[in-house]
Nucleic acid binder design. Structure first.
Lengths: 222, 222
DNA sequence: GTTTAAATCATCCAAATGGAGTATTGTTTT
DNA sequence: AAAACAATACTCCATTTGGATGATTTAAAC
């Protein structure tokens, strides 16, 4: 029997989740709390042998939000497994919840069987349950291609007053194409492409492709 | 119709995957390659309008392994989506594959319907397909509780197995210096610098400085 | 209406680059 | 001891690049 705590400020949500889990007889709801403060308090009054194994935590709650509650409770009760169960899937919240100590992150839109299966799997194998779309966002965090890692193309390119055509050609240059390739793509002579390149180098105050690409990459021109 | 490439050194595996996808009429296998080098070569001879949308990549292959192939190809063909399809689930490989540019990571044990569903979802919504147990390992990386997640600093350049000297020369190249400049700085012949450069290009599977620098910048080698 | 700027294309030339070899010298690894 | 690898260096060759210079056309700016 897996003991589960539900933390959500909406009574309707708590009831829906309870009913979803009730379809499977191996779950037992031992705590239903309205926010983080309520959950932490109930944990202090319940006997340790009746502590929940898994805590389903909503994020948007009054008084003490889910992130804070996870961060606090995971320190006080390291044996608890915290699963975020929410409708929010923005990177900020995902990242903070994970850093706070959540071992899983499920969207409320998941079907009851999926949620039940994943919680049972968490219980049996220890693998945290994660909704596919959340998993992909986490992957992107590891990849570093989001939020912190992305650069805005508009700001950098205009300092050097490159014309639209020059920006276009710089883009192709960065892809590794040579004069005649770019000429074919744009239906112009390779000589013209070369002319544009030299103009670009002059505006960037360099005299080789590698130097131009260095500026392009480091200043966010491409 | 989703065009798919399969890269696996075992003919049996390629056939099994083909048959799994053949159950769903919306997939079309456009490339079947035996290793990374084979795949990269086939990409150069196929017309761009027939390029695959999704590349299913095994990791353990002779000549050019999957990680290197993804790192190279994702720079050369940014529009491709790379999905690792393998039996391995150790953190080292997951981490390297993600850093190399994979957008998904599926275990071969997944059923054909699950694989098909996730690839279709990738096609329709852009969300990378990730097996649940893999997703949890990625989450742990973000949490910073695992070994391979912690030493992320060194990994970038090591995917391509560049020697220390080659990394050094790649660094100078990115600064915009030419053979003779670098030779003077390192007290070696420009001929030797050139030799190193060509070795670097071979390891990166490119054939120009601009292409090498693109990979270097986008994969964090410099 | 003239000026200015951008985009187009060309020719000539010197330098740099990419590629295929061959070869020597040290380390490692086996 | 042999094999593999890394770093060094060279030659020969075709291609690419950077630069200078001149020219035409079109569109926007004054």
């Amino acid at each position: 029997m897996i003991r589960v705590a539900i933390v959500d400020d909406k009574a309707t949500n708590r009831r829906i989740v309870s009913e979803k889990l009730a379809e499977n007889k191996c779950f037992q709801i031992v705590i239903a709390a309205v926010d983080g403060a309520d959950f932490l308090h109930q944990m202090t009054v319940i006997e340790p042998e009746n502590h929940p194994h898994i805590v389903l935590m909503d994020l948007e709650m009054p008084h003490v939000n889910g992130i804070t509650a996870i961060a606090t409770a995971s320190s006080l009760y390291p044996q608890l497994r915290f699963v975020v169960l929410t409708i929010f899937d923005d990177e900020e919240k995902i990242f903070n919840a994970i850093k706070a100590g959540a071992c899983g992150y499920l969207l409320k839109e998941e079907s009851s069987t999926v949620i039940a299966d994943m919680l049972i799997n968490l219980w049996e194998s220890g693998a945290g349950p994660i909704s596919p779309s959340i998993a992909y966002k986490i992957l992107q965090m590891v990849q570093g291609q989001t939020a912190s890692g992305l650069r805005k193309a508009e700001t950098g390119a205009d300092i050097f007053q490159l014309s639209a055509r020059e920006k276009e050609i710089l883009e192709w240059l960065s892809q590794g194409y040579e004069y005649k390739d770019i000429g074919s793509k744009l239906f112009i002579s390779p000589n013209t492409v070369k002319k544009h390149c030299i103009s670009i180098y002059q505006k960037l105050h360099v005299n080789s492709r590698a130097q131009a690409l260095r500026i392009a990459y480091t200043k966010g021109l491409i």
